[in-house]
């Protein structure tokens, strides 16, 4: 059984000019222990799609299920990591990591050890008492990651998690995410990564879903069958990059609207 199934999902938002279609007829599956990347132009609905998957918002049409159950309300088996880290500046590292557990009403006596475990797993030992402002970007994102993993999610959703980081820091964290994902003793089972960075998608993912311009639909799903660590300068890597790049730039025309006049309102 698929871990997540996204079936014929449409999403539109109301605006002064009527409803605007953001995405159209999106269908894909996430298998157990999948590493899936989603790429597509700005505004094509990638962040919205992650929110729909986690149950933070509802599709206009279509269905999303997790382990065969429709996602209704926020799914506690999923956790999100954000580009902006989204940490509480007035809480220490430990308190930030504890936050999600408290929200899920974990028993107090279990929270402490869980927080310690995930601080250690993400390399944050020594920074327990620090406030986010004292940390480098890389360390802040580790806190975002520790907070997400502490709830032991089956699925880690990541929305441009590396794009606010310098190149070397991003390189380190990308590889650490792979490590955590591969470790059977640690969450998550599956990862969905949203990124603008095509190379990053190919470097990390088993499969890359390429979305069109708004309203976003799936242009193609591309399998990445290269051994890790992947050499960005290798021929096959380059071919994949090139293929996805041309899909996005040339093939990215929106589908004709199925019925009404929605879809192509003001840019």
């Amino acid at each position: 059984m698929a871990l997540i199934r996204v079936e014929h999902v449409d999403k539109s938002f109301a605006s002064r000019h009527g409803s605007i279609a953001i995405m159209q007829d999106i269908t894909f599956e996430v298998k157990d222990s999948d590493f899936l990347a989603i790429v597509g132009p700005s505004g094509c609905g990638k962040s919205t799609l992650l929110r729909l998957i986690q149950g933070l918002d509802r599709p206009t049409a279509g269905a999303i299920s997790f382990r065969g159950q429709p996602v209704a309300g926020v799914c506690t088996q999923m956790a999100m990591v954000f580009q902006s880290f989204a940490l509480y500046p007035w809480l220490t590292v430990s308190q930030n990591v504890a936050f999600g557990l408290e929200a899920l009403e974990w028993p107090k006596e279990k929270i402490g050890s869980q927080v310690e475990r995930y601080i250690s797993v993400t390399g944050l030992d020594g920074f327990q008492e620090a406030y986010p402002r004292e940390l480098s970007g890389g360390m802040r994102q580790r806190v975002g990651l520790a907070r997400a993993l502490a709830v032991e999610p089956a699925v880690l959703l990541m929305d441009e998690p590396f794009s606010a980081l310098d190149a070397l820091t991003a390189e380190s964290l990308r590889e650490e995410i792979l490590q955590l994902w591969r470790d059977p003793a640690l969450p998550p089972e599956a990862v969905i990564l949203v990124t603008h960075n095509i190379e990053e998608a190919i470097q990390l993912a088993d499969r890359v879903i390429v979305l069109s311009r708004r309203p976003g639909h799936v242009l193609e799903t591309i399998d990445v069958d290269l051994p890790r660590p992947r050499d960005r300068k290798s021929g096959p890597f380059y071919d994949l990059t090139d293929r996805i790049y041309s899909l996005i730039t040339q093939g990215g025309a929106p589908l004709p609207p199925p019925s009404g006049a929605d879809g192509r309102s003001a840019s």
């Binding site: 480098s136 360390m139 310098d166 070397l168 820091t169 390189e171 380190s172 964290l173 660590p229 992947r230």
Partner: peptide, 17 residues
Amino acid sequence: KSSPTELLGLLVLLNGH
């Protein structure tokens, strides 16, 4: 003159080569 995570990034990069 760089952070621990940057240094680790360099090592990961080298490992990729």
